[in-house]
């Protein structure tokens, strides 16, 4: 079974993140990491490969430095990667991103595409359905569990209040939440092996897409302004010296919650 994993490099969500002067995500800092949910997608693909054989290919659209993230996926155990890197893509909206990823997916044979349920920078959580609508392939998203049996795919689609069992046939696109597995760390051997694994790099032109169809100029969405969230006004903090619980109850009573 051949699997493509969609991996996006993002600024570390645990650190301060910024927009640049053009109100785009500042990706120039040193804090770039693999999309935190994409790690679960890579792990899910590796487990399926271990069970069913085949190959795991990473697909990334992003600037040159995204190679670091690709190397990490190869060190985890992915076999090869396709990296779409092109200056003209900067400022693309989600629709243009999906156009490029769909074209890239058209370059090889695959049975299953696995994505993170959402990226951890812009976090729209829509890429798999954009791709499904573009390619006509089935999408069973938001998985907390995936089983493949022959050509049948079973997904437990996580909901706030339970889950749905979705069934479909390969080829399919799935996306995963962080409940699905525990991603492995790359081993030293994996890190060494990753250096020899192939990464193909292409531009959007190579995919047959005109640069004018992507990037900021083509985007339907426009960010007008951005500002830091105003801090909440400082609250009252007390230290418990035996009466902290009562003080808490009094505050709640004053606010009419009791």
């Amino acid at each position: 079974m051949n699997i493509v994993v969609l991996v996006k490099q993002v600024p570390d969500s645990g650190l301060a993140r910024q927009l640049d002067a053009q109100l785009r995500v500042d990706r120039n800092g040193a804090n770039n990491v693999m999309g935190e949910l994409d790690e679960y997608a890579v792990e899910a693909a590796l487990q399926l490969k271990e069970a069913h054989g085949g190959e795991v290919t990473i697909l990334t659209l992003g600037p040159d430095q995204a190679t670091e993230t690709i190397r990490k996926t190869l060190a985890m155990g992915a076999d090869k990667a396709l990296h779409i890197s092109d200056e003209s893509v900067a400022g693309s909206d989600a629709l243009a991103t999906s156009k490029i990823l769909a074209a890239a997916l058209g370059r090889f044979e695959w049975d299953l595409v696995i994505a993170g349920a959402e990226s951890t920078d812009s976090g729209m959580g829509i890429m798999p359905h954009l791709l499904a609508a573009r390619t006509g392939v089935a999408a069973a998203t938001g998985a907390r569990k995936i089983d493949v049996d022959g050509t049948a795919v079973n997904v437990e689609h996580q909901r706030d209040n339970g889950y749905d069992v979705l069934t479909t046939q390969l080829p399919a696109i799935v996306s995963v939440w962080d409940t699905i597995n525990t991603p492995r760390y790359p081993s030293l051997k994996g890190i060494m092996a990753a250096k020899r694994k192939p990464i193909e790099t292409l531009t959007v032109g190579d995919l047959g897409i005109d640069a004018a169809e992507v990037g900021a100029a083509a985007a339907a969405t426009e960010v007008l302004e951005a500002a830091d969230r105003p801090p909440r006004s400082a609250g009252q903090i007390v230290t418990d010296e035996g009466e902290g619980g009562r003080a808490l109850a009094e505050f709640l009573a004053a606010e009419k919650f009791v």
Partner: peptide
């Protein structure tokens, strides 16, 4: 940093007392 009201303390001391009071 975002709390309107905070108690610095052990939750096993603070919460039972608060619950009882409520």
């Amino acid at each position: 940093g975002m709390a309107d009201f905070g108690v610095v303390g052990d939750l096993f001391q603070v919460l039972p007392q608060a619950a009882e009071e409520i």
